[in-house]
Design a protein around this nucleic acid. Structure first.
Lengths: 125, 125
DNA sequence: CTCTTATTGATATAGAATATCAATAAGGAA
DNA sequence: TTCCTTATTGATATTCTATATCAATAAGAG
């Protein structure tokens, strides 16, 4: 199944970049509707999935949250403000060696891990 | 709003303990229906929430997953098998000092963090 | 330009969790 | 024990996110 370039895919990628960070599918949909009202919601969901599979955007899965999509594809942590609900990037080195620590103790093959921080952001304090 | 003890709440707490770990609300509901078929789904969801608020069980939030409820209330990490989807406890010391590391760099007040590991469990390899 | 088929978009569907609300029952007071 | 207030229950409806369906459209290779 060869990928095809479409106007819709282009618009969606641009919208994720323009919204810059952590946009939900619904937010991306609303953003695109301004300039291209005929776009379908399913198309947005579909392409966000495809784009993240192709590594053009990063899918961020938060517990008890809608999926979010980030134009920054490099690994970094996130923190969620428990008051306003917004997601922020965390400026911090990645914790290394975490998976090594537990590799031996279990028969598991470790692939990845994710850290989610919670707190109160400056604006909400 | 004073809490009342009900048969349903008792059954739900017992079911979480019997299922031992990481049961979803639907699983708890199915389990209780065996002995108490008249219980309502909303009652299960409601009480799982109440019980976790009261600290009698622990609510585990996984990305892109239903909520799960654990009878082990102490802090520990979890790993999800990407093949069978099951959740396992991780036998590993808690990572300390994580929030301290980033406290200074941001105006944030850090409250908590959660680490979710992903891998392939022994059975699925 | 033609043809194959990936993609679109309207709609339906699935699934988790909460909201609504009359009926029930817990448990404090008499 | 009995009465009364009101928290709780359970059936149902609703919300919300995300995916599935499918005829119509359009990308892009030949």
């Amino acid at each position: 199944m060869k990928r095809r370039n479409t106007i819709q895919k282009e618009l969606i990628l641009n919208a994720v970049k323009r919204l810059h960070s952590h946009a939900t599918a619904e937010e991306v949909y609303a953003e695109i509707q301004k300039e291209y009202p005929s776009i379908g919601k399913a198309t947005v969901y579909r392409n966000l999935k495809l784009l993240s599979e192709d590594g053009q955007i990063k899918r961020i899965e938060f517990p008890c949250e809608s999926e979010r999509f980030d134009d920054t594809c490099s690994d970094h942590y996130h923190i969620k403000c428990e008051k306003c609900g917004k997601i922020f990037d965390v400026d911090m080195d990645l914790v290394s060696g975490l998976t090594d620590k537990i590799k031996d103790k279990h028969g598991f093959t470790f692939n990845s891990y994710q850290i989610v921080f919670k707190g109160i952001c400056p604006n909400c304090q």
